[in-house]
Design a protein around this nucleic acid. Structure first.
Length: 529
DNA sequence: TTGCGCTAACAATG
DNA sequence: CATTGTTAGCGCAA
C-alpha cells in the first residue's frame, strides 16, 4: 500500500538558519505521574526554574539516552539539508492493523498502565545518562533542546525554537492537498456506493451491510496523500457467543446463539457451529470481484491471506489509491469480552462518562486468522475497535474545547502524524529490511493512545510545545520497544511488542534508528516524499 | 433518502 | 500570524 504520491512537491526549504535557540529545556519530564511536562517548551525561557518539572528531566535534550550521541559534529550545527530527495513513502503499512499475535502476552510487566516513565528509559541503556536536572547527561550543555545545537542559549525563541519550526514545516508537508482529497474522496465514495448497493442486492446475507469509514483518512491523521482508505462493511450480527481461541484475548471463534428462525448468517455456519470467517470473506470477495471486474487490478491481488481486508486499487500510479474493504460483524447489546476488562483506561483522560458511552457501543469482529505458534487457525475473528479509535482521535481533549476554534490548540494529532511519518520514512529508507516491515501504523496509533493516558491533560500537549511533546512521545515509544511491551489499548493482555511478534533484533534496530534521528535532529525528515 | 448545520482541515489573503 | 472562504464527513431531522 502505499506509496509515493505525488507529493514530491512541497517542501521547500527556506527555513532559517539554525541559530540558536534553544528552548529552555523542554519540559519533558513527566514521570509517570504525569506532571505537566510540557509547558515551557519552547517558549521563553523565563523562569525555567519553575517550569521544570520535578522529576527527572533533564534529559531535556537530546542526548537522551542514547548511547552514542551519534552526533558527529559536535555540537552541531548546521545540518545540511538536502532538500530534495525523493522518497516515496507512506507507511505502507497500513497493513493489517494489529498484528496477529497469538497468545502472547508475555509477561506483562507489572507496571500497568503506568508505563515506563522516563526513568525507565534512563536506566536502561546503561545508566549513563544522568538525568538529574542540572547535570544533563553528557557534557555539553546539552541544553537546549535538541534543536538547537549546542549553543546554549536559552533564549527562547518564540514559539518553540528552531526545532519546533522545523517540525511544523514537516507537518505542513504532511498535510493532504485539498484538490487531491477532493478527487480521491469522490472516486472512493463513488466506488463504495456502487459496491454496497450491488452487494446488498446480490447476496441476501449481506443485505444489511453498512459503511463505516475507519483508519487514518477518516481520523484526520492521514499523512502525505489521500491514497489509502479503510472502509468497513459492517454487518449486524445476532447475539453471538465468543470463544477465545488463544491467549491474546483478541481472537475468537464465533457461534450464533440459538435462533429458532434462523438468520442471514446460517449459510456460513460450519458443522461445529462456528461462523466461517473464510466463507464470508470469500463470498464478499467474489461479489466485489465480479462487480469491479477487471477494472481494478487483478483479482487475486485483492486479498492477502490472513488479512481481513480486500484491497482495491483505483487510479493510476502517480495518484493510485488503495481502498481496503473490511468485512466486520457488528455485535451490539452485549457486553464486551472479558479480555477488554482492564483496557480503555481513559478515566483520567476522557473521563468515566465517555468511557461508559464507549462501552455501550457495539464491538466489531473482523475475519483474521489467529496464528498459534506456527499454526494458522482459520475461521477466527479478531476484535476491532476502529469506531472508538476514530472517536477518541476526534474527541481527544481532556477539556471539551480542546482544538475548537475557540479553545486551545493541542499537538496530539501532530505528534501522531510525526511518528507515523518517522516510521514511514525509516521503512522506506531501509527498504523494510531488518525487520522494519513488522512495524505498522497501528503500533504508532496504540502508542499514541497510551501516551494520551499517560499525559491526560491538554496542558501537557500545548501546540506551542510541539517539540518537547514529540520528544516525550518518542521517548515513550522507545521505552515500549526496549521493554518489549506495548499493550493493545483495548485488550491489555495483547502485547503488540511481545517477542513473539517483534523479535529483539527488529526492535533494537528500530530503536537505534529512532535514537539516531532524535540525536541528529531528524535528518530523515529532510527527505521529500 | 435528502438536506441542513456543524466541525476539522486546507488554502488563500493581507 | 490571524482571518476568511471552501470542502469533506457526519449526525440529525424532515
Amino acid at each position: 500500500m502505499g506509496d509515493q504520491c505525488a507529493a514530491a512537491r512541497r517542501a521547500r526549504g527556506s527555513r532559517k538558519a539554525p541559530s540558536q535557540s534553544s528552548a529552555p529545556e523542554p519540559p519533558r519530564s513527566h514521570s509517570a505521574a504525569a506532571k505537566p511536562p510540557a509547558r515551557g517548551g519552547g517558549r521563553a525561557g523565563a523562569g525555567r526554574g519553575d517550569a521544570r518539572p520535578p522529576g527527572e528531566h533533564a534529559k531535556a535534550i537530546n542526548p537522551r539516552d542514547s548511547p552514542s550521541p551519534t552526533d558527529p559534529k559536535g555540537a552541531t550545527p548546521a545540518r545540511s539539508r538536502t532538500e530534495k530527495g525523493p522518497a516515496p513513502s507512506e507507511m505502507g503499512s497500513v497493513h493489517n492493523g494489529k498484528g496477529s499475535a497469538p497468545g502472547e502476552s508475555n509477561a506483562v510487566p507489572s507496571r500497568k498502565g503506568a508505563v515506563p516513565t522516563r526513568k525507565d528509559s534512563a536506566r536502561r541503556e546503561k545508566g549513563a545518562v544522568p538525568k538529574t536536572k542540572e547535570s544533563p547527561a553528557r557534557g555539553p550543555p546539552a541544553v537546549a533542546s535538541y534543536c538547537c545545537t549546542g549553543a546554549e542559549s536559552s533564549v527562547g525563541v518564540k514559539s518553540g525554537g528552531v526545532g519546533a519550526r522545523r517540525l511544523r514545516d514537516v507537518l505542513k508537508t504532511l498535510s493532504l492537498g485539498r484538490q487531491d482529497t477532493s478527487e480521491a474522496s469522490e472516486n472512493v465514495n463513488q466506488l463504495i456506493r456502487t459496491l454496497v448497493s450491488a452487494i446488498r442486492a446480490r447476496e441476501s446475507s449481506f443485505s444489511s451491510i453498512d459503511i463505516l469509514g475507519t483508519g487514518s483518512y477518516y481520523e484526520h491523521v492521514k499523512i502525505s496523500a489521500p491514497n489509502e482508505f479503510d472502509i468497513m462493511f459492517t454487518m449486524p450480527a445476532p447475539r453471538v457467543e465468543l470463544e477465545q481461541c488463544d491467549g491474546s484475548g483478541a481472537f475468537y471463534y464465533v457461534r450464533l446463539k440459538r435462533n429458532p428462525q434462523g438468520n442471514d448468517l446460517d449459510k456460513f455456519l460450519q458443522e461445529d457451529g462456528t461462523l466461517a470467517a473464510c466463507k464470508m470473506l470469500f463470498a464478499l470477495r467474489n461479489i466485489i470481484k465480479e462487480i469491479s471486474n477487471h477494472k481494478h487490478t487483478g483479482p487475486d491481488s485483492l486479498h492477502r491471506a490472513g488479512s481481513p481486508a480486500i484491497t482495491l486499487r483505483i487510479g493510476n500510479p502517480p495518484m493510485e489509491i488503495s481502498v481496503d474493504i473490511i468485512l466486520a460483524l457488528e455485535v451490539r447489546s452485549q457486553s464486551w469480552p472479558a479480555s477488554t476488562q482492564e483496557g480503555l483506561k481513559i478515566e483520567k483522560w476522557l473521563g468515566s462518562k465517555v468511557k461508559q458511552e464507549y462501552k455501550w457501543k457495539p464491538i466489531y469482529l473482523v475475519p483474521k486468522h489467529a496464528k498459534d505458534g506456527r499454526v494458522l487457525k482459520e475461521d477466527t475473528w479478531r476484535l476491532s475497535f476502529s469506531h472508538i479509535e476514530k472517536e477518541m482521535i476526534k474527541n481527544h481533549g481532556n477539556t471539551k474545547t480542546c482544538c475548537e476554534s475557540k479553545g486551545v490548540k493541542c499537538c496530539r494529532k501532530s505528534c501522531l502524524k510525526l511518528l507515523k511519518h518517522l516510521l514511514d520514512q525509516l521503512k522506506t529508507k531501509d527498504g523494510n529490511r531488518r525487520g522494519l516491515d513488522k512495524f505498522c501504523s497501528y503500533h504508532a496509533k496504540t502508542a499514541f493512545f497510551q501516551a494520551c493516558v499517560l499525559w491526560p491533560d491538554d496542558k501537557q500537549w500545548l501546540f506551542t510545545d510541539l517539540e518537547s511533546c514529540f520528544q516525550n512521545f518518542l521517548d515513550y515509544f522507545l521505552d515500549c520497544l526496549n521493554n518489549a511491551y506495548l499493550p493493545h489499548f483495548f485488550i491489555p493482555t495483547h502485547n503488540l511488542f511481545s517477542r513473539q511478534l517483534i523479535d529483539k533484533a527488529s526492535s533494537d534496530f528500530l530503536s537505534k534508528e529512532i535514537k539516531y534521528e532524535i540525536n541528529n535532529r531528524f535528518p530523515i525528515f529532510e527527505l521529500q516524499n
